[in-house]
C-alpha cells in the first residue's frame, strides 16, 4: 500500500461502543461517588467491615471494595439503560423521529 495516504481507523461496532460507553461512564460516576461517599464515611468505622481500628489496611480495603461496589452498581444502571434504549421497537423509534 501507499504509505503516503491517510489511514482511517474502522469505526467501532455498535456493541463495542455500548460496552465501552457503559463501563466508562459508570467508572467516572463511581469514582466521583467514592470521593463523595468516603469524604463522609470513614471505612475504618463501618460496622460490617472487620473492625481494624484506624489502620491503613482496613481503610484501604474499605476504599477498594467501596469503589468496586459503586462501579458495579453504576454499570448495572448503565447496562439496563442501554438495554432498554437498544431494544426499543424499530417502528416506534422511527415514528418518534418523524
Amino acid at each position: 500500500m501507499n504509505t503516503n495516504e491517510p489511514t482511517s481507523p474502522t469505526r467501532w461496532p455498535q456493541r463495542r461502543q455500548d460496552v465501552a460507553a457503559g463501563l466508562w461512564a459508570s467508572f467516572l460516576v463511581a469514582a466521583a461517588a467514592s470521593v463523595l461517599c468516603f469524604a463522609f464515611v470513614d471505612p475504618a468505622q463501618l460496622d460490617f467491615l472487620p473492625y481494624a481500628g484506624e489502620s491503613t489496611a482496613g481503610r484501604m480495603t474499605g476504599y477498594g471494595v467501596g469503589f468496586f461496589f459503586l462501579w458495579i452498581v453504576a454499570a448495572a444502571a448503565s447496562g439496563l439503560t442501554l438495554f432498554l434504549a437498544r431494544t426499543e421497537r424499530a417502528d416506534a423509534a422511527d415514528s418518534e423521529q418523524r
Binding site: M1, N2, E5, P6, T7, S8, P9, T10
Partner: peptide, 13 residues
C-alpha cells in the same frame, strides 16, 4: 471513497 478504500483498523498519525 478514497479513505474508505484504504480503510484500516489502526491509525498511523
Amino acid at each position: 471513497s478514497e479513505t474508505l478504500y484504504v480503510a484500516h483498523e489502526k491509525l498511523y498519525p
